[in-house]
Nucleic acid binder design. Structure first.
Lengths: 188, 188
DNA sequence: ACCTGCATGTAATTAGTTACATGATTTT
DNA sequence: AAAATCATGTAACTAATTACATGCAGGT
């Protein structure tokens, strides 16, 4: 699952420019995987070189021209093939989870701030997903709902788990101690 | 959250060799992030170079010697500092989720096999976590339970969500169509 | 005989981020 | 006046994977 596959996934749902692909990955599908432009644009060029996508320049008023990419039959075949062949991997790369796991070594006010930060981000993501499903311009309503339903479902259960975790950590018998000057004893 | 931070996290809980760190990350903390030896050993060397860890060679009978790493005060301080300073990022890099999102383009028997594969992996991981919490040799019981409780909690809710998703996809009104020879129409 | 587990490491390659470069338009 | 949005791209760098190299012990 590299950037090229991620691009093909988005293009499978509908045509999009590099900027738009990144927006989808950063907003509607945040919590999945973000990509940087430095990786995205070369990846799109490679997709065109390999005949997996085509592009056309679309002029706009006010804003700059954009290169709109469309997946080809070969691209779609390869996307489906790769997806089917790939092992069902599942990894959560989360700094936040690590912050929760090691909550006892963080300053309590910092921990609370981090929790708030992440919960706010979850709220924003969920709002974006609702927006995404609501409007209907380029992507098919069915596809959108499928993607959004899954994402919001997974996120909601995550939110619930994390809220419970937070409640547990905030309870008096689990008072986190302040960040120490010396090392923390954990080899008990 | 790079490999060095991941190593410090494991070493914060207790001393371990490179091989053991990888084992923890691949088994007890599977679904978090796996690391390859090609990245792990150079990372450990760098930690020692930077004074964030020390190592000692431990001879064993039957099996080869091992280099056991221990976190230093400076290492612990930096681990806590980095963890505290870092934004509360949260990303799920999951081929499996993508396979579910695009379930309709996969052959139904392949989809079922992928689901089984992942559910089996979840079961194995949960069993490993129970084992991990049960025995008590090197890592502190408290830390283990904290880590394991969180992981299994998050995974269990995930499992539940995924089981529901699977049940929904298996119901007759959602029969997935076979992998097509031509492109799939999604631009409805 | 062959595979798996234990154990550490290097070399070649691929993948990805960060920072830079450009420039118009709209919002604060 | 400053910042954000739209829009594409390159160059330098960092980080990571994959494949290789070595070797012994125990199980099938």
């Amino acid at each position: 699952m590299n950037i090229k596959h991620l691009c093909l996934a988005v293009l499978h749902v509908g045509d999009a420019s590099g900027y738009e692909i990144r927006k989808v990955l950063a907003e509607e599908l945040a919590n999945f995987q973000e990509v940087s432009f430095g990786a995205l644009y070369p990846a799109l060029r490679k997709l065109v070189d390999e005949g997996l996508a085509t592009n056309r320049t679309v002029a706009q008023s006010g804003v700059p021209d954009k290169k709109v990419y469309a997946i080809t039959d070969a691209g779609r075949a390869q996307f489906i093939d790769t997806l089917s062949e790939a092992p069902a991997n599942h990894q959560i790369r989360s700094t936040f989870l690590m912050q929760l796991v090691f909550a006892d070594v963080l300053a309590p006010e910092r921990l609370r701030a981090l929790m708030q930060e992440r919960l706010d981000a979850f709220e924003r993501d969920l709002a974006k997903i609702d927006e995404f499903v609501d409007c209907s311009d380029q992507f098919s309503r069915e596809s959108r709902e499928r993607v959004a339903r899954f994402c919001s479902g997974a996120l909601r259960t995550h939110c619930a788990t994390l809220r419970d975790e937070i409640a547990r950590l905030d309870s008096p018998e689990n008072t986190p101690h302040n960040r120490p000057d010396g090392p923390v004893s954990c080899a008990g």
